[in-house]
């Protein structure tokens, strides 16, 4: 083993700008968990930030964004955690006599009681209304402290999904997909001539001509791949 094979403390980091250009304080700054983000004085700690001993500390890998005096981290990866009034697309994963269990992509399945379901059936008739594996568009009604949640199908446009395709993207990419004031999403709908519903849990319902669906799918995949390959630097 010769000298080349040896790493010394001072020559270990070869690439100083591996994460792309890092301008101070602006949106493109990438951070890793544990990174110090300055004094917490006059600053508000947002998502992914913790105040420890009067200093702001990143708890997630992502991009720092400043909004007024609120500092938040836009994570590069995130799990979906349900919040009340979220529109979600779920799959029926199981049922009892009067309750459906809906997989909404969160750590826990949500409960859909018969009283909030798509219609009425006799006690024990849950499967005649919605069977296991079927997709539903529903809204999160309540979330407990322990993350168990109840979803409802009572409301405008909430229904069983019978046609089209459902695609998955990571929930933190939704903002990018929708764009400012829904601009990008509107454009996407126009371009592909598809009906698209973007749910808060990162599932996207696409309906229309086959070509259009494939087009939307491709674009979603490109977006996800880009976000991963370049560390989320847009």
């Amino acid at each position: 083993m010769k000298g080349r094979w040896v790493a010394r403390l001072y020559n270990m980091s070869v690439n100083d700008d591996a994460g792309g250009p890092r301008s101070e304080g602006r949106a493109s700054r990438l951070v890793a968990p544990g990174e110090d983000l300055g004094d917490s004085e006059g600053q508000e700690a947002g998502h992914g930030i913790l105040v420890m001993d009067g200093r702001l500390r990143a708890t997630k890998q992502g991009r720092v964004t400043m909004n007024g005096n609120a500092v938040t981290i836009e994570p590069l990866r995130s799990a979906y955690i349900p919040r009340p009034s979220d529109l979600v697309i779920g799959f029926v994963e199981g049922c009892t006599n009067n309750i459906w269990f809906i997989d909404i992509g969160a750590p826990f399945n949500a409960i859909l009681p018969m009283s909030l379901g798509p219609g009425r059936a006799a006690f024990g008739g849950t499967r005649s209304l919605m069977d296991i594996g079927e997709a539903v568009l529903c809204r999160v009604q309540e979330v407990e402290e322990t993350h168990s949640s109840v979803v409802t199908m009572k409301g405008m446009g909430l229904r069983k999904i019978r046609s089209g395709n459902i695609e998955d993207i990571e929930p933190h990419l939704l903002g990018r997909l929708i764009g400012k004031g829904g601009k990008s999403l509107r454009q996407l709908k126009e371009d592909t001539d598809c009906r698209i519903i973007v749910a808060d849990n990162g599932r996207i319902w696409i309906d229309g001509e086959l070509d259009g669906i494939v087009d939307v799918r491709d674009r979603l995949q490109v977006m996800s791949a880009e976000a991963k390959s370049i560390g989320g630097v847009a």
Binding site: L9, M12, S13, N15, A18, G19, L30, A32, E35, Q61, K228, S229, I230, G231, G232, V233
Partner: peptide, 19 residues
């Protein structure tokens, strides 16, 4: 302690460099 600083740099670089 000294080594940890150097390794941490590599870890952060790996995270920021993307997949």
């Amino acid at each position: 302690m000294e080594a940890a600083t150097a390794i941490h740099e590599i870890m952060v670089e790996a995270l920021k460099g993307g997949d």
